[in-house]
């Protein structure tokens, strides 16, 4: 385990939060999308994170077997919200059903905003961790001065 391992772990966290941000942007952009490739309204997407040990080299795998590992975060799946769509009465809409109801994505704007702030803060936390690791390395170099 060296100084750079901390940087790599934070890097995986940054990538994960960036992807989460992308999905939230997609959710916000498609808040009233009624047509998708799969048919029906857009479904809210959310990432599933998993802690994984980085399996880059034999040495790292051996280290992880000895319990000496920093788990990286990895996006293993992107799930779609299966909650029923919101039904809105709008008979003039081209996607309205026979009763005049349009199926809209079940996306709560407040919830998405909260997730957005959470993703931003998590990203910032990872950046802070990177900075701290770098500061530590540079401080160590000052020992010889």
């Amino acid at each position: 385990m060296d100084f750079f391992d901390a940087l790599h772990t934070s890097s995986s966290g940054l990538s994960a939060q960036r992807l989460r941000m992308n999905l939230i942007s997609g959710n916000l952009a498609n808040i009233s999308t009624t047509r998708t490739k799969e048919g029906g309204p857009y479904r809210r997407k959310e990432p599933v994170f998993a802690a994984q040990s980085p399996q880059t080299s034999f040495r790292k795998i051996l280290a992880s077997q000895n319990g000496d590992h920093l788990p990286h975060v990895k996006v293993v799946r992107i799930i779609e919200d299966q909650s029923p769509p919101l039904m809105k009465y709008d008979p003039n809409h081209p996607d309205a059903d026979d009763n005049g109801y349009v199926a809209l994505p079940n996306i709560n704007l407040m919830e998405e905003m909260v997730n957005l702030i959470s993703a931003t803060r998590s990203y910032e936390a990872n950046v802070t961790a990177v900075k701290a690791a770098k500061e530590m390395a540079l401080k160590a170099l000052e020992i010889g001065k």
């Binding site: 100084f3 750079f4 940087l7 790599h8 934070s10 890097s11 940054l14 990538s15 960036r18 950046v127 990177v130 770098k134 390395a137 540079l138 170099l141």
Partner: peptide
């Protein structure tokens, strides 16, 4: 950030 971290590594 990957680019930035690679640059930081080179710097250190």
């Amino acid at each position: 950030h990957n680019t930035m971290i690679t640059m930081e590594k080179a710097d250190i």
